[in-house]
Design a protein around this nucleic acid. Sequence first.
DNA 1: ATGACGCTCAAAGAGCGA
Length: 260
Amino acid sequence: MTVASWNINSVRFRLDIVERFLREHAPDVLCLQETKVIDNDFPHAAFEALGYTYRLLNGQKMHHGVAMLSKLPLIEDRRYDWQDNGEARHIGARLPNGLLVENVYVPAGGDIPDTAKNPKFAQKLAFLERMTRWSANLREPTLIVGDFNIAPLESDVWSHKALLDVVSHTPIEVEHLARLAAAHDWVDLGRRFVPAPQRLYTWWSYRAADWKASDRGRRLDHIWASPAIADKATRFEIVEDARNWGKPSDHIPQLVELAL
DNA sequence: ATGACGCTCAAAGAGCGA
């Protein structure tokens, strides 16, 4: 089975490229972040037509929002609000084979990497801390995917030096992400298949004149597996070409195949 | 150092992304 993840930056505005991705890659499950739509306005019909019969939504007006679209039944759905502020950032479900899939959109954290000056940065770290406590108690094989908004390794960014003080690659965020990983011994499947320091990015800013030429990318999106199932992963793929599709998202989709 | 872009909506520019 394959599970994909994509920060789509408005599912309605980019419905055509989501459909293209599903036709060309046909994952069993697609986890979307930044759907930017309330549940009542979610474009169900397009996904129903492509066989994604099972849909789990956690949307809100204007910002954030996550969704899972699946060919397989989604059972035991759950949602988490790690900030306790009503933001729609995390849903999960169990698949018929027992696997838990969690889909998360970690807060970006604002501009200034200082918790005293920037409440959003403090919220981002608190979000990760709550996820860490949850991870520590997790006993079942789980795949967690999404936009973590942190590029942890030096080779996860176009310039480690230039981004050391830029939110997404600061040492304190990297430490928080490492503690989250350690709490469940999460296995970073992206780096298992594409070991550092090989180039592996999932996001390029809209603000570059030519994203490909400047290639100032960051690996903000991740797929992690419980240690018990990490060895079941047989394939990992990013679809970098999608950064050029139509009106593109600034993130690209990634997929993992599991022999479960 | 700055600003570059793009999406949403109380509909023009503010708020947000990262």
